[in-house]
């Protein structure tokens, strides 16, 4: 395991720590295969031993579908950011969900295009300051944000949940959600989607503590955490 190269306070390292914990606990590492998209998420392969494929921007769910159909016994997950999943490759996600491919799609939603330097992304909340919306995102000029977990829940998926990483209670729930997501895949019940709300202190122009506070506020105002869809799990 190498030293993390993420910024201080970044949610990527936090989420990857949770994933590592789950993989080791379940002993999944031999069957796992990760697919990453473009952006900050593409460094995933550095920190894990199982094969991680770099997909073309936005097409990670399609690559994962190809892997899953060819070798159904593997556990395939995509690890994408909100810019990659929501802006470039929403069609790949929707079609994978409609086809009922049993893959796990993890989206770290930090509400900003962090990999390219902090521009507005599709999930940037109204009023948020980014490098391309200096006065805050205005719905009149830049449109409304997309609510990913709610949107995916309307599709024929097995599981769709939004979790957050700002408080220990929420981190516990995030861990449970990630476990459930891989269980749904193991049962072959369909696509499982987990949207993880995270922080990006440098491009939110805040300290990590302030960023956690503003994530807490945005959770109440814009993006409620919760399970939006969960079919009965086969035990």
């Amino acid at each position: 395991m190498s030293e993390s190269e993420y910024c201080p306070g970044c949610s990527h390292s936090h989420l990857q720590g949770l994933l590592r914990e789950i993989f080791q606990e379940r002993g999944l590492t031999e069957r796992l295969m990760g697919v990453v998209g473009a952006g900050c998420s593409q460094d995933l392969g550095k920190y894990f031993d199982f094969p991680v494929i770099k997909a073309p921007p936005g097409l990670a769910p399609a690559v994962a579908a190809g892997i899953k159909r060819t070798t159904p016994d593997r556990l395939v997950f995509t690890y994408q950011g909100d810019g990659d999943l929501g802006s470039r490759g929403l069609d790949a996600l929707i079609h994978a969900a409609l086809r009922g491919d049993s893959i796990t799609v993890l989206c770290l939603n930090n509400q900003v295009m962090a990999g390219s330097g902090g521009q507005m992304s599709i999930t940037t909340r109204t009023g948020q300051v980014t490098t391309s919306t200096r006065l805050g995102r205005s719905t009149a000029r830049a449109g409304s944000p997309l609510k990913l977990a709610e949107m995916v829940a309307r599709l024929p998926v097995a599981f769709s949940q939004r979790v957050s990483l700002h408080e220990s209670d929420f981190v516990k729930r995030a861990r449970l959600a990630l476990r459930d997501a891989f269980d749904y895949q193991e049962n072959g019940q369909g696509l499982s989607f987990v949207e993880v709300l995270g922080i990006c202190p440098p491009y939110w122009h805040q300290s990590p503590e302030e960023a956690q506070q503003s994530l807490k506020q945005s959770l109440v105002r814009h993006n409620p955490a919760g399970i939006f869809k969960g079919v009965t799990m086969i035990r």
Partner: peptide, 23 residues
């Protein structure tokens, strides 16, 4: 395995995944 992809780019992306696992 056969998938009718939504776009040709997605079809090739799927093939990229399939060839990563030995096909």
């Amino acid at each position: 395995s056969f998938i009718q992809a939504e776009s040709p780019a997605a079809a090739l992306a799927m093939a990229m995944g399939a060839s990563a696992v030995g096909s």
